[in-house]
Simulated assay, not measured.
Amino acid sequence: MSLDTPRIEARPERLTAHEALQRLEHERNSRLTQLQAIHEAGHGAEEQMMSAQKDTINRVLNEIEAAFTRIHNGSYGICLGCSTHIPVERLEILPYTRFCVPCQRTTA
């Protein structure tokens, strides 16, 4: 192999349960930190915006918890719309996603 040739590593088709759990725990901790920061900011002129942020964060937390359930029941990484495997690249970006990109577009 030439030193000039970039090394291309094969990407796994699926995340391992351990990798998925780590990503989901990171996402959950990030959202909980955001909620804590909003709570500590208190009431002010931006109360309506903060309420919308809280709603969004709570929605994502619910999706994260549902993803933990899918890991435990063996359905994690399977699209709920078409039952195909969700690409690992998508799960790396959105570890709590329930849909592949085409099905997400039709549910949005």
Rank of each mutant, 00 (worst) to 15 (best):
D4R: 09
D4N: 06
R7T: 06
I8T: 05
I8R: 11
E9P: 04
A10R: 08
A10W: 11
R11K: 10
P12V: 12
E13N: 01
R14A: 04
L15V: 00
T16A: 09
H18P: 00
H18T: 07
R23K: 15
L24Q: 00
H26E: 13
H26D: 13
H26P: 03
H26G: 11
N29R: 11
N29Y: 01
S30D: 11
L32V: 09
L32Y: 06
T33I: 12
Q34C: 08
L35P: 01
Q36V: 07
E40A: 06
A41P: 01
A45M: 09
A45H: 09
E46W: 09
E46F: 13
E46N: 08
E47N: 04
E47S: 05
Q48L: 09
M49T: 05
S51D: 12
A52L: 09
K54D: 05
K54Q: 14
D55F: 07
D55M: 07
I57Y: 04
N62D: 15
N62P: 02
I64Q: 02
F68A: 02
R70P: 02
R70Q: 05
H72Y: 07
N73Q: 12
G74E: 04
G74M: 10
S75V: 03
L80K: 14
C82W: 00
S83A: 13
T84E: 15
T84C: 13
H85S: 12
H85D: 13
I86L: 04
P87V: 06
V88M: 08
V88A: 09
E89D: 12
L91F: 02
L91S: 01
R98L: 12
F99C: 15
F99R: 10
F99V: 12
V101R: 12
V101A: 14
P102M: 10
P102S: 10
C103N: 13
C103I: 10
Q104N: 07
T107I: 14
A108V: 12
